[in-house]
Design a binder for these strands. Structure first.
Lengths: 338, 338
DNA sequence: TTGAAAGCGATACCAC
DNA sequence: GTGGTATCGCTTTCAA
């Protein structure tokens, strides 16, 4: 394991110059820097992590607190974990995993031992125990998702309410008079407080636009396709021509199959918009308009905010909402003239 | 951030005694240890991670190399990552995440910087680039899964071959004369070399037991249920009464639905055994006999082996196969007397 | 623009 | 059974 003094010797400079050349915290002449970089490359030097932490009081490690509840949607979680880790690496940070059975204790431990510079919290529940720990800790903490009580916290999320409004508006603009919502399972409404915000925003906006709204929460995906199909049938019977979907990929597929079974085409007879999904609505048999929840966006923002906090720069505590982006895929069309 | 000397002062001992009391590497009188523990608790002390790494040359961190390929099965991956992280924590280790775009570079980096004590490799491909890196590195590395060329490596996995043999034997013992295999997607056969071992073991054992074997790889799960259904129909037409399933949960569900549609009952008409699945075959509408791939088992073994290597204790390089466990759930019954 | 040297906070050797 | 202290490899002040 090659050390900094070997690099210094090889480059014919002092240890401190090597350190500065690598960190860029002090100007180093072009020629000297070149020699140092050559030596670094030559010897395959990378600074000892422990020594760096100790001397620099920065670890370049984030903790990712990721409670894996039995009912969480694995593919979405993976996307977020992955996006977060990649975003961190782009900023030279590594990612340490904190599991659920360890969430509270783990957050304390990594903070107290100075193992990490900041904590990133995924899969935030409305009533999340980690909120209190974050408040009690001096370690910068960013929530991806929004707990009910987010006073003084830094939270990142998609702006679901505006996304929903946008979705309703698109349908209204296309002349649709009745809109239906296919939401997630009942459990989803306890796990996160956004499904209910979507539902509320939809009702409100539909009313404002003079539409009638029918909202339905779908049952647990795999075990209860029939409930989703029932909802779709009810929509059709009630003259709903616009559907807003806030649910996983599997549910969309059931919806599409059922519509086809009822002889309804998309967007010929029924228009669909997906809100806040993190799967690719473009890769569906029928591409679907979407206002996606893009893990990369949330995660990059979260990482940037963490870095600001670490640097001691001011960050507005409160909600950092990501503006929705509407992706047209041709699944919204004017309502058929009855 | 409270330091060791404050604890020492509070307990009225020297810092070395505190260190020894905490590490247990030197006997400390009961009374002294009690006072130290009290002080630790009182002050909320936890040792500085950087200092510890530097002085002790142990980091108590593992790296988890987890290439997230687009076609990987998210729920299984999550199970493994989670199980591995939990197993590590039980041994006082934290887990650092290495992503795919970083796999090779990341492994080198964390090894060279002394950030981790060992590397755990998940989702091993038959022809895995990480094999070479492991060979070139002095950092202990454990593979969960088996690359084709595993010379000199330490690999952990379920003993799929014996598991398959056991499954075939159960069916043979129950009098079944023809056995069918529902495997994963074609891609699965490239991603890991176990699906093909299962297939080979099945053919061989079936022959040994005087059975006829029909092997079928199912298509990509979601987009091609029809292929699975076709296979099931073919099985029934060909008089197959015993099915070995080596595929994800979704495939099992399709199989069960199709059998029902064909008027076949389980285990009345057809017997089924699942091999190497990591979902709960007991939670299915029809519970299924299973020789499960238990993430906990693999991960605990991997962690134990890593610790052995770190401690400098000898570990047999080569395959560490986990003995299969057969779980009876009533899905295997004597072949109906035609 | 560069160098010397004082820490950072533990661990573990050497004494007692 | 306990204490003093050199040491780990870097960062960063202070000097030049």
């Amino acid at each position: 394991m090659v050390k900094i003094d070997e690099v210094a010797r090889a480059a014919g400079v002092s240890i401190s110059t090597v350190s500065y050349a690598l960190s860029g915290k002090r100007p180093v002449s072009a020629e000297t820097r070149r020699r140092i970089q050559a030596a670094v490359h030559e010897l395959g030097y990378s600074p000892n992590a422990g020594a760096r932490m100790l001397a620099g009081s920065q670890t370049n490690i984030f903790a990712l607190s990721e409670p894996l509840r039995a009912d969480s949607h694995a593919p979405s979680h993976m996307s977020f974990m992955h996006a977060m880790t990649v975003a961190a690496r782009r900023k030279e940070y590594d990612m340490l995993l904190l599991t659920d059975e360890d969430a509270s204790a783990g957050m304390k431990r990594v903070a107290q031992s100075g193992l990490v510079d900041a904590i990133l919290v995924l899969d935030v529940a409305p009533d999340d125990a980690r909120v209190e720990i974050a408040r009690a800790s001096a370690t910068p903490t960013i929530f991806v998702g929004i707990p009910n009580d987010h006073e003084g916290l830094v939270c990142v999320d998609l702006d679901f309410e505006h996304a929903t409004v946008e979705a309703v508006d698109r349908l209204a603009d296309a002349g649709h008079r009745a809109v239906g919502l296919i939401g997630g399972s009942e459990r989803a409404y306890e796990k996160s407080n956004f499904p209910s915000r979507v539902r509320a925003a939809l009702s409100e906006r539909a009313t404002e636009r003079g539409m009638s709204a029918v909202s339905v929460a779908s049952g647990p995906v795999v075990t209860d396709r029939s409930q989703v199909r029932r909802s779709v049938r009810r929509f059709v019977e009630n003259g709903v021509t616009g559907i807003v979907l806030h649910a996983p990929e599997e549910v969309l597929q059931v919806v599409l199959v059922e519509l086809a079974a009822l002889g309804k085409s998309v967007p010929g007879d029924v228009s669909i918009v997906s809100v806040g999904s993190s799967f690719d609505t473009d890769a569906q048999p029928t591409p679907i308009d979407s206002i996606p929840l893009v893990p990369q966006s949330s995660c990059e923002l979260a990482v940037d905010l963490a870095i600001e906090l670490i640097a001691g720069r001011p960050v507005a505590s409160g909600l950092h909402l990501i503006a929705p982006t509407y992706l047209e895929r041709g699944s919204v069309a004017p309502v058929p003239s009855a």
